[in-house]
Amino acid sequence: KRPMNAFMVWARIHRPALAKANPAANNAEISVQLGLEWNKLSEEQKKPYYDEAQKIKEKHREEFPGW
C-alpha cells in the first residue's frame, strides 16, 4: 500500500467533521469538498501535513525497501 501524501494526511483528519456536517453527502461529494478546502489553504497552512507525509514516506521506505 502506498504511503499517504499531504492531502491524504489532512483529509483523514477533516473528513469526519465534513461528513457529520453534511450527512446527505456521499463519499465522492465529500472528497470533492475536501479537495476544494485543501486548495484554499496557504502553503504555510499545508506545511505541517507535507512534513507529516514526508515522515510517513520515510517510515514506509524503511519498512518496505524496494517497494
Rank of each mutant, 00 (worst) to 15 (best):
E63A: 07
E29V: 03
P16S: 04
K57C: 10
G35Q: 15
A19L: 13
E43L: 05
N27I: 07
K59C: 13
I30C: 02
M8H: 13
Q33V: 07
R2L: 01
E63G: 10
W10M: 01
E43I: 09
A11R: 03
A21L: 12
Q45H: 03
M8F: 10
H60K: 09
Y50Q: 08
K20Q: 12
P16N: 09
W67A: 11
R15I: 00
L34A: 05
R12F: 06
W10A: 01
A21I: 03
E52C: 04
S42K: 05
W67H: 11
N26Y: 02
A19V: 11
Y50D: 03
S42L: 01
K59E: 14
M4F: 02
N5E: 13
K46H: 01
P23Q: 02
E52V: 06
F7R: 06
K59Y: 07
L18K: 03
R15D: 00
N5V: 02
Y50T: 06
K47R: 13
N27G: 11
Y49G: 00
K40H: 04
E44Y: 04
I56D: 02
H60D: 14
R61S: 14
A19Y: 06
P3T: 13
L34F: 00
F64T: 15
E43S: 06
K59P: 08
K20F: 07
K46N: 00
Q45P: 00
R61Y: 10
K20I: 15
E29T: 11
E58V: 10
W67S: 13
R61H: 09
K20D: 10
L36F: 04
K55A: 12
F7A: 04
A28M: 07
N26M: 06
N22H: 15
R12K: 15
K20H: 03
K59A: 13
A25K: 13
N26Q: 12
L41Y: 03
E52S: 02
W38G: 02
V9P: 02
A6T: 01
P16M: 07
H60G: 14
V9D: 03
K59I: 12
W10D: 04
A21T: 03
N26V: 04
R12M: 11
N27D: 14
I13Q: 09
I13P: 01
A28S: 11
K59G: 12
M8Y: 02
R12L: 09
P23M: 01
F7G: 02
A28L: 05
R61A: 13
W67G: 15
V32H: 03
F64Y: 14
Y49L: 01
A25F: 09
P3L: 11
Q45F: 03
R15C: 03
K59N: 08
P23G: 03
E63F: 11
K46R: 04
E37R: 06
Y50L: 08
P65V: 12
E44Q: 13
R12I: 05
N22L: 05
F7K: 06
Q33H: 08
R15P: 01
Q54P: 03
A28F: 12
E58I: 06
K20S: 10
P3F: 06
L36C: 10
S31F: 05
E37Y: 04
D51I: 09
Q33M: 08
N39K: 13
P23D: 05
K57I: 13
A53D: 08
S42N: 06
L41E: 00
